[in-house]
Simulated scan of single mutants.
Amino acid sequence: MQILLPIFYLPPISWFAVFLQDDAEIIFEQYENFPKQTYRNRTNIYGANGKLSLIIPMNHNGTRLLKEIQTSTREKWQHIHWKSIKTAYQTSPYFEYYEDKLEKIFSFKTASLVEFNLNALKIVQKLLKTEKAYSLNNEYFKEPEYLNYRDQLSAKTETNFQMVEYYQSFSDKFGYLKDLSIIDLLCNKGPEALTYIKNVKTK
């Protein structure tokens, strides 16, 4: 089964549930026009005041093609995002265990959004102890022959993937927040994160 997946920034759990399907051959979409307000440049974590969106600022140079999109170099967003993650998860059970490797995500130097996201994925795969292969597409198809997830995983609507609740750092305050960034799952579930993902019921 071939699946066309968008390239997300520290993707939500639902994305990993699709990505890590055993029988799936994953192809990443890099030739689409960059859609705004999606997980391609944002990730949701659990902050002290509830859900917190971390958004990578774009360098608006006229291009719309995802593979050519560049991140802003004027703003210290990598420093800000790492500080937010550290503040949110420093009391979680596994943050200290993963801290050094997670920090490397934000010291990676590139202006390319795709390169940044793929490097972060490489680090996350190591933390999950998985080596799922993927390829990048060579052109854009409006109606691809693959199973198409480009518009399926929305940052604006709640996922209908079925997930078991797990304890989160601020659940006592705001309750369980579903389908946050893979960072939330790793910091709270640690080595059990991969098993958890495999048990998520996909659509």
Rank of each mutant, 00 (worst) to 15 (best):
H79E: 14
R64Y: 10
Y89R: 15
L66Q: 09
Q78K: 15
W77S: 04
Y89N: 14
L65Q: 07
M58I: 13
I80S: 13
N49H: 14
R74S: 07
L66W: 01
I55A: 02
Y89E: 09
K86P: 06
A88K: 09
T63C: 00
T87Q: 14
W77V: 02
S53G: 04
S92E: 09
K51Q: 12
T87F: 03
L52M: 15
K76Q: 14
T71L: 07
L52E: 15
Y46N: 08
H81C: 08
N49M: 08
Y89I: 12
I69Y: 02
E75G: 01
P93K: 13
I69M: 08
A88M: 11
A88I: 10
H60Q: 03
P57C: 02
K86N: 13
S53V: 01
W82Q: 01
Q70H: 09
N49P: 00
T63H: 10
R74G: 13
H79S: 14
S84F: 08
A48L: 13
M58F: 04
A48N: 14
T87P: 02
E75Y: 07
P93I: 09
Q90M: 13
I69E: 01
I85N: 02
P57F: 01
K67L: 09
S72W: 02
S72V: 00
E75S: 10
S84C: 09
K86Y: 15
K86S: 15
G47T: 06
Q78I: 00
S53E: 09
Q90A: 11
P57D: 03
L65R: 15
H81W: 07
T63Y: 02
L52W: 07
N61K: 11
